[in-house]
C-alpha cells in the first residue's frame, strides 16, 4: 500500500513534533489520517504505517485494536457515534441511539443496507452538557440531537450522498 503525497506530507507534520528517535509517537495521528482517507485501517495500511515509522506491524496493530475510534473493518460512509453514558442517558441519549437505529432499520453497531450509515454506541464523548450528542466520522460533534434534529441529520446526509 502506498500513500498519496498529501497523506505523506500530513504524516511528516506529525512526525516532526517528536524527537528524531521517537517517530513511533506519531502512530496514532498517522492511523487517524489513514482512516480519514480510506474509511478504515486495513492490515496493509498498518504495515505501511509501521514501515514509515520504523516500528513492528504488531505494535501498530496493538494501537488500532486498543483505541475505540479506529475502524478495524470497512464501515458505512457516515459513522454516527451516539453517546449513551450516564450523563447523556439522563438527557435521552439512549433514546437518541434507539431513534437513529429505528430510522435506519439497523441494530446498534450495524451498517445500513445502502452502505451509508454505521451506528455505534459511544462512551463519553466529553460533551455531556450538550446531550444528546452524536459524533460524525470521528470529526464533527453534533449537539442537542433530539429526534427532529436526528431526522434532519439523516435526511441531510442521505441527500448529500445522492
Amino acid at each position: 500500500m502506498t500513500f498519496t503525497e498529501d497523506t505523506m506530507s500530513r504524516f511528516a507534520q506529525e512526525v516532526a513534533k517528536f524527537p528524531a528517535e521517537q517517530r513511533q509517537s506519531a502512530v496514532m495521528a498517522c492511523l487517524a489520517i489513514v482512516q480519514q482517507q480510506h474509511g478504515w485501517v486495513s492490515a496493509e495500511a498498518e504495515q505501511a504505517v509501521a514501515a514509515y515509522l520504523g516500528m513492528p506491524p504488531i505494535a501498530v496493530r496493538e494501537v488500532t485494536t486498543f483505541y475505540n475510534m479506529y475502524n478495524q473493518q470497512p464501515i458505512g460512509r457516515f459513522k454516527l457515534n451516539v453517546c449513551t453514558n450516564l450523563p447523556c442517558q439522563l438527557r435521552d441519549g439512549k433514546a437518541a441511539l434507539d431513534h437513529v437505529c429505528h430510522r435506519l432499520g439497523i441494530e446498534e453497531g450495524g451498517t445500513s443496507a445502502d452502505g451509508l450509515f454505521t451506528v455505534q454506541k459511544a462512551e463519553c464523548l466529553g460533551a455531556c452538557a450538550d446531550a444528546p450528542v452524536v459524533l460524525v466520522n470521528d470529526r464533527q460533534m453534533l449537539s442537542f440531537m433530539r429526534p427532529d434534529r436526528l431526522d434532519d441529520l439523516i435526511d441531510t446526509l442521505k441527500a448529500h450522498a445522492r
Binding site: F78, D130, V134, V136, Q140, M145
Partner: peptide
C-alpha cells in the same frame, strides 16, 4: 474515499448554552 462532508454546522453547539 475521503468523504466530502455536507455542512453540518447548524447541528453544532454555539457555546451559548454551556459557556
Amino acid at each position: 474515499m475521503t468523504a466530502v462532508m455536507p455542512d453540518l454546522s447548524r447541528f453544532q453547539a454555539s457555546g451559548r448554552e454551556t459557556c
